[in-house]
Design a protein around this nucleic acid. Structure first.
Lengths: 218, 218
DNA sequence: TTGATAAATGAACATCGTTCAGTATAATGA
DNA sequence: TCATTATACTGAACGATGTTCATTTATCAA
């Protein structure tokens, strides 16, 4: 029975090794040219052996995605706890910047977490805890009257849209002639947050002229 | 020579038919389970015949992407010309909304144009003309002093980030518990644009407290 | 050492993208 | 009309893919 524990440990180590190798191959060769057989060759096992650890390719990927979500979540929580007693707006902006930075510094984690095409039936469970951090930060801004009484959920989702937008574009379209990165990120964050702080009546002035326009196809 | 013209026309029709079938299969079955052989079967030709019209799978996809870009571009241009003499801020907001609407109403075009993983060496040529429309609209807002003298390029890119963010999230994460769509889209657009209209000194107040935070990995 | 349990293999299957020698089809010139 | 030529198309083939499974190999308790 000590033996079976040792076996399980060894098996876990092997799974770990497979995951690491898979991530590396994926990062180096891209999604298109990743294959189970390459992976097997890389860890020096037969192709069939991989299936002793993961049901199939899809599940293996799912494990990688989950890991990436965990990393993002941990990074955000560290930030949240580290700046608990500061100005909530400043903390929020720092959080948004941290999110973007995480994506840019770990583009493959971000790709796994958000950018990969995914079968529709799978739901992104791990999005929710990560998003809780955002809600919490926005909530504090409202509670401490730094924001007008906006709906926390709507505001959080809108902020997420903005930072996801810049993060994914910078990752996925590196050849676009972007302006300086820092400047652009600042602009996105400041636009989004400052736009939220605008007194409602003032914002209404421009909102009034806008109606829903529908564009049909060619 | 009349004959060769007829032949070419027939060939063009066939290419068209192949593209339509490809798009349909892709939309219905998803990227993973699209295959050249299925496509061939769909149009009732042998697999090899597809290669008389398209060099390979990659190029076939490229054609679909290009078509999608064209559709988006045309939609934006129609809008630009249709609202030439109105309030530039309202027109800008309409343009942003039109962009998002186009993406949501034609998610597959949007997927093809922006969301698909692409080999890194390929550059997104068609992004530029579409982006010109955005630059133009922002430029008008600055010229007519509706915006403070922000850098047009930076502002345009920031706005693009915001609307791409909400568009891609709504398309790619349909199971997330989003608030009402209209409301959320309004929030994103108003945040982004109103944030841009904030007088610089007022914005500085909050900007002052924010510095670049770097989050390392676990 | 033996017998049982788990791990690992490698051959096999269906499918994939792609190529190409060969065949059918259509257009042309007589 | 028939023979020639150019084009359209096929079908078999190649190597590679994800996945399964009967069989072999290794591991460990008795």
């Amino acid at each position: 029975m000590n033996a079976i524990a040792r076996r399980e440990k060894h098996k876990a180590e092997l799974s770990r090794q497979i995951l690491d190798a898979a991530r590396e191959i994926f990062v180096r060769d891209g999604y298109e040219s990743f294959s189970m057989r390459k992976l097997a060759q890389r860890v020096e096992y037969s192709p069939g052996s991989i299936y002793l650890h993961f049901k199939n390719k899809e599940e293996l990927f799912e494990s990688l995605v989950e890991e990436s979500f965990d990393r993002l979540l941990k990074a955000l929580n560290r930030l949240k706890n580290g700046h608990a007693q500061q100005d909530p707006v400043a903390t929020l902006k720092k959080g948004l910047r941290a999110y973007i930075d995480f994506g840019l510094r770990n583009p493959n984690d971000y790709r796994f977490a958000f950018l990969l095409r995914r079968p529709l039936h799978r739901c992104p469970y791990k999005v929710h805890p990560a998003f809780d951090v955002m809600r919490y930060m926005v909530g504090r801004c409202v509670e401490e009257k730094r924001f007008p009484p906006v709906d926390v959920e709507t505001a959080s989702q809108a902020l997420w849209a903005a930072i996801h937008g810049i993060t994914s574009l910078l990752i996925q379209r590196p050849t676009f002639p972007w302006v300086a990165r820092r400047q652009l990120i600042d602009q996105v964050i400041n636009n989004a947050v400052d736009g939220l702080m605008v007194r409602t009546d003032q914002a209404e002035e421009t909102r009034a002229g806008v109606h829903h326009v529908q564009l049909s196809r060619v």
